[in-house]
Amino acid sequence: MKDTEIIELQEPRLSVADQFYVPQMLVGMGTTLKHMFMTLTGKDRVIQYPEEKREDIPVVEGGMNLRTYRGVHRLNKDEGGRVKCVACFMCSTACPAHCIHIEAGESPWADREKYPIQFDIDELRCIYCGMCEEACPVDAIELTHEYDIVGLTRQEMIFDKEKLLKMYDQTVEKEPM
């Protein structure tokens, strides 16, 4: 660092009101008081989560935009109920958090070469950016609107292929492919 790069900042000179402190303080306390009234009269308050959910609220009122919301992943199935994924590793390559682990193998089906023997997503490590969805050439991986996933251990939060396919079954009616 050169001396010329150092910028000395002077504290701004206080006005009389600033220096007396009380008027400025009252302004601040007025703001909090306003919020108290707003909250108590129910005009402005946070969403009461378990009872109210963002997906039930219009977007303009701060609700969830379901068109763009990115939640937990699912692995889509094709018409035959088989996993759509072809184990091309595009999602794990695109993933900035390195949370997708795939092990590929030769598929048991005649119409396809490759399929994932193992497909794990670490939902704790994932940053829900949706890059995997973008990268997928066969639309096999998708981000659903589910966000309230819980687990007792870290291991439980690593979703394997079965869990991701189950996620598809759970969400396919609400969110068709």
Binding site: A87, C88, F89, T93, A104, G105, E106, E113, K114
Partner: peptide, 9 residues
Amino acid sequence: FLFKQRVWL
């Protein structure tokens, strides 16, 4: 090596 790993990795 078939299907084992992608070469860019």
